[in-house]
Simulated assay, not measured.
Amino acid sequence: MKKKQDLVEIIAKQQEVTKKEANKIIDAFTNGVREILANKESISLAGFGKFVTEHKEEAQRVLGFTGELVTIPAHYVYKAKLSKAIVK
């Protein structure tokens, strides 16, 4: 599995910038997506994918191992879905 440093090297080479600058680019991207999701919004990046925020209403569930009925409070879930173009 590749790590952030591997991506830093790829971006630095492709954009002809230093590794420090490439790292700032990656951090800016991830912080931007994080901010959008924190504001309960979603973002779609054509040719890359979607980062989606969904609100789930309060729900009742049965615990399979005890049969106990529990209430799951309303909450937000975050999803990432890659574009078909990126997984070819």
Score class of each variant (00 low, 15 high):
Met1His: 09
Met1Pro: 05
Met1Arg: 09
Lys2Ser: 13
Lys3Gly: 07
Lys3Met: 04
Lys4Asp: 08
Gln5Phe: 02
Gln5Ile: 09
Gln5His: 07
Asp6Cys: 07
Leu7Lys: 06
Leu7Pro: 00
Leu7Glu: 03
Val8Gln: 01
Val8Arg: 00
Val8Ile: 12
Glu9Asp: 15
Ile11Ala: 04
Ile11Asp: 01
Ala12Phe: 01
Gln15Val: 06
Gln15Asn: 12
Gln15His: 07
Glu16Ile: 10
Glu16Arg: 14
Glu16Lys: 15
Val17Asp: 07
Val17Pro: 00
Val17Ala: 06
Lys19Gln: 12
Lys20His: 06
Lys20Val: 10
Lys20Trp: 03
Glu21Tyr: 02
Glu21Val: 10
Glu21Asn: 12
Ala22His: 00
Asn23Pro: 00
Lys24Ala: 14
Lys24Pro: 00
Ile26Leu: 13
Ala28Ser: 12
Ala28Pro: 00
Thr30Ser: 11
Asn31Pro: 01
Gly32Phe: 08
Val33Asp: 02
Arg34Gly: 11
Glu35Lys: 15
Glu35Leu: 14
Glu35Val: 08
Ile36Gly: 10
Ile36Val: 15
Ile36Tyr: 05
Ile36Phe: 07
Leu37Trp: 01
Leu37Tyr: 04
Ala38Leu: 11
Ala38Glu: 12
Asn39Arg: 15
Asn39Leu: 12
Asn39Ser: 15
Lys40Cys: 07
Lys40Trp: 02
Glu41Pro: 01
Glu41Phe: 08
Ser42Thr: 07
Ser42Leu: 07
Ser42Gln: 06
Leu45Arg: 08
Leu45Trp: 09
Ala46Gln: 09
Gly47Ala: 08
Gly47Leu: 08
Gly47Phe: 01
Gly47Tyr: 03
Phe48Met: 11
Gly49Asn: 02
Gly49Pro: 00
Lys50Phe: 05
Lys50Met: 11
Lys50Asn: 14
Phe51Tyr: 08
Val52Cys: 05
Thr53Phe: 12
Thr53Cys: 14
Thr53Met: 09
His55Cys: 03
Lys56Ser: 11
Lys56Pro: 01
Ala59Met: 13
Val62Trp: 06
Val62Tyr: 07
Leu63Gln: 14
Leu63Tyr: 05
Phe65Ala: 15
Phe65Gly: 11
Gly67His: 08
Gly67Asp: 06
Gly67Cys: 06
Leu69Arg: 15
Leu69Cys: 03
Thr71Trp: 04
Pro73Tyr: 05
Pro73His: 05
His75Cys: 08
His75Phe: 03
His75Tyr: 05
Tyr76Ile: 03
Val77Asp: 02
Tyr78Cys: 00
Tyr78Thr: 00
Tyr78Glu: 01
Tyr78Met: 01
Lys79Arg: 13
Ala80Thr: 10
Lys81Gly: 03
Lys81Trp: 04
Leu82Lys: 11
Leu82Trp: 11
Ser83Glu: 05
Lys84Glu: 14
Lys84Phe: 05
Ala85Arg: 12
Ile86Lys: 10
Val87Asn: 13
